[in-house]
């Protein structure tokens, strides 16, 4: 048990919390925040797990940097879409008024 493993376990916990939020919450912004929580948890697992045994490993750190940029891009895009959607429809969730078979993004 090294300190870095502690990060990995914390990451697993964050993934679980994020997962719960992602399924449970209806408000789109909260859903997005929950997704970011899963993302942070994943990055913690990636960095924390990789350096068990032998000191710091630069490769997963670089991977996480790439992952962060990708998730920032996705988050920013989602915010733009959410704001536009809210502006046009006045709803903050996808389910507000739709009719067809609907779990979709909630899964």
């Amino acid at each position: 048990m090294t300190p870095s493993l502690l990060y990995a376990f914390a990451g697993a916990g964050l993934c679980g919390i994020g997962m719960f939020g992602f399924i449970q919450l209806r408000h789109l912004l909260r859903k997005l925040l929950a997704f970011n929580l899963i993302g942070s948890g994943t990055f913690l697992v990636l960095v924390g797990l990789a350096q068990h045994g032998q000191g710091p490993d630069a490769v997963p750190q670089a991977l996480v940097l790439t992952g962060i940029v990708v998730s920032i891009a996705a988050t920013a895009l989602a915010i733009v879409l959410i704001r536009r959607y809210f502006h046009l429809s006045g709803h903050t969730s996808l389910e507000a008024d739709d009719s067809d078979s609907g779990q979709g993004g909630a899964e």
Binding site: F22, L49, A50, A78
Partner: peptide, 27 residues
Amino acid sequence: LRASLRYLLAALLGSMAYLLGVALMYG
């Protein structure tokens, strides 16, 4: 917009689950 948001959220969750698997594989 609603369809694309739903698509985006599903796609993001799917990629994140995949990435978590990748993290375990690398570990």
